[in-house]
């Protein structure tokens, strides 16, 4: 099977429509399992009490907020290097979900911080760089809307996204580089996690749910972008005529 075939919007449009509901279903199931583990199985934290249960959405969405920008940067490199339409459409489709993930991470962080640290917000290195990420998402969305020609917008947004990726390691390492309010990571690839096993399982299942959710929403959004941009193309008329996809 030639996978490159699916780099054409004409081939990708129907397959995205077939895949999206399955990713959405898997995301919902993972979220249910994750919330069950997080609220029923996992014990109360000995320091934070029940307030820590906010981390089951805070940490997965914060991870996704950073990861989505890196995926956008990956598609942007492909879009610039290979001049492929679908790569730029993927980057475009990811941006709103990245912005939502960043917003949720900031919001849940504030409502975790208030009972735990005593403040909703501080100009701490981690929080400030994450807020800048939210502005970068707004920036890339606004930049696209400001340019009428979609192909020029693709290139401008690709450059913006690649340059903006410099903020991701700053967010990630901010807790090590600057000793401000936000604590270091409780989960890392190099050390044993500093939390109860059931808490970790709940968080990882929720992280999986966030991944699957992002894929589902982005597949549907990329279909709307294809409909917008390929309007009037012969293949699109043929696809819409032959079946309801």
């Amino acid at each position: 099977m030639n996978l490159y075939r699916y780099s054409a919007p004409a081939a990708f449009y129907p397959i995205a429509g077939v895949l999206a509901p399955w990713f959405a279903l898997a995301a919902a199931l993972c979220a249910l399992v994750g919330l069950y583990v997080g609220f029923v199985v996992a014990p109360t934290d000995f320091q934070q009490g029940q307030a820590y249960r906010i981390i089951f959405i805070h940490v997965p969405t914060a991870w996704m907020s950073m990861f989505i920008w890196l995926v956008m940067a990956f598609w942007s490199v492909l879009a610039l290097a290979l001049n492929t339409r679908l790569s730029a459409m993927m980057a475009q489709a990811l941006a709103p979900t990245g912005a939502w993930m960043t917003f949720i991470a900031l919001w849940t962080g504030a409502f975790w911080g208030r009972p735990t640290w005593g403040t909703y917000w501080a100009w701490d290195a981690r929080m400030t760089s994450e807020l800048i990420l939210l502005f970068l998402y707004f920036g890339v969305i606004a930049l696209r809307n400001a340019i009428d020609d979609p192909r020029r917008a693709d290139r401008a947004c690709a450059v913006f996204t690649i340059v903006g990726a410099v903020n991701i390691p700053i967010i990630y390492f901010s807790v090590q580089w600057w000793n401000t309010l936000h604590q270091g990571a409780s989960v890392s690839l190099t050390a044993a996690p500093s939390m109860a096993a059931t808490m970790l399982v709940g968080m990882l299942v929720m992280a999986l749910a966030a991944w699957l959710y992002t894929i589902a929403v982005v597949l549907v959004r990329v279909r709307t972008i294809i409909l917008e941009r390929e309007r009037g193309a012969a293949w699109l008329d043929a696809t819409l005529a032959t079946r309801r996809v």
């Binding site: 029940q50 307030a51 906010i54 919001w107 849940t108 409502f111 009972p115």
Partner: peptide
């Protein structure tokens, strides 16, 4: 939620 209901449910509700 052990008196943290407001914070937990505001976080989950807005999400």
């Amino acid at each position: 939620m052990g008196n943290y209901g407001f914070y937990v449910w505001t976080a989950y509700g807005v999400t």
